[in-house]
Simulated assay, not measured.
Amino acid sequence: MLISESNKQNGATDKQKKVAELFESRVSVVAADISLDRLGVDDETYNMLQLETDIIIHSAAQVNLVYPYEALKSANVRGTLNMIELAHNSTKIKPLHFISSRAVFPPRPGSTHEEDTPLDDIATGHTEGYGQSKWVSEKLLELAQKRGLPAVVYRPGFIGGDCDECYWNPQDTNLAIFQAITATGFVPRHNWALEVTRVDFVAKFVTKCLQDIKFSSGKRFNMVQPKPLDSKALYQFMENYGFKLERVSIQEWIDKIQNSEKLKPPLKSLLKEMNSNESLFPLERTKFSVKQTSEAIRYFEVQGYPPIDTGYLRKFFSKQIERNILTSPPLLTAEIDKFSTYKVVKARNIKMQSL
Rank of each mutant, 00 (worst) to 15 (best):
M1A: 13
L22F: 12
L22N: 12
S25L: 14
S28G: 05
V29P: 00
A31R: 13
D37G: 00
E44G: 00
Y46S: 05
N47S: 15
L51A: 14
I56E: 03
P68C: 03
V77E: 08
R78C: 06
N82F: 04
I84T: 03
E85H: 13
I93Q: 12
H97C: 05
F98S: 01
A103N: 11
A103E: 13
P106G: 13
T112A: 08
G125A: 11
W135E: 02
S137Y: 07
E142F: 11
Q145F: 02
G148H: 03
G148V: 04
A151D: 04
P156Q: 08
D162C: 05
D172E: 09
N174Q: 10
W192Q: 06
E195K: 09
V202C: 13
Q211W: 03
D212N: 12
K219N: 12
Q225R: 02
P228I: 03
L245Y: 07
V248A: 07
Q251W: 06
I254C: 08
S260E: 05
L271K: 06
M274Q: 12
S276F: 03
F281M: 08
L283N: 10
K291A: 13
T293L: 15
R298W: 01
Q303T: 10
P306A: 09
I308D: 01
F317M: 07
L326C: 05
F339I: 08
Y342Q: 09
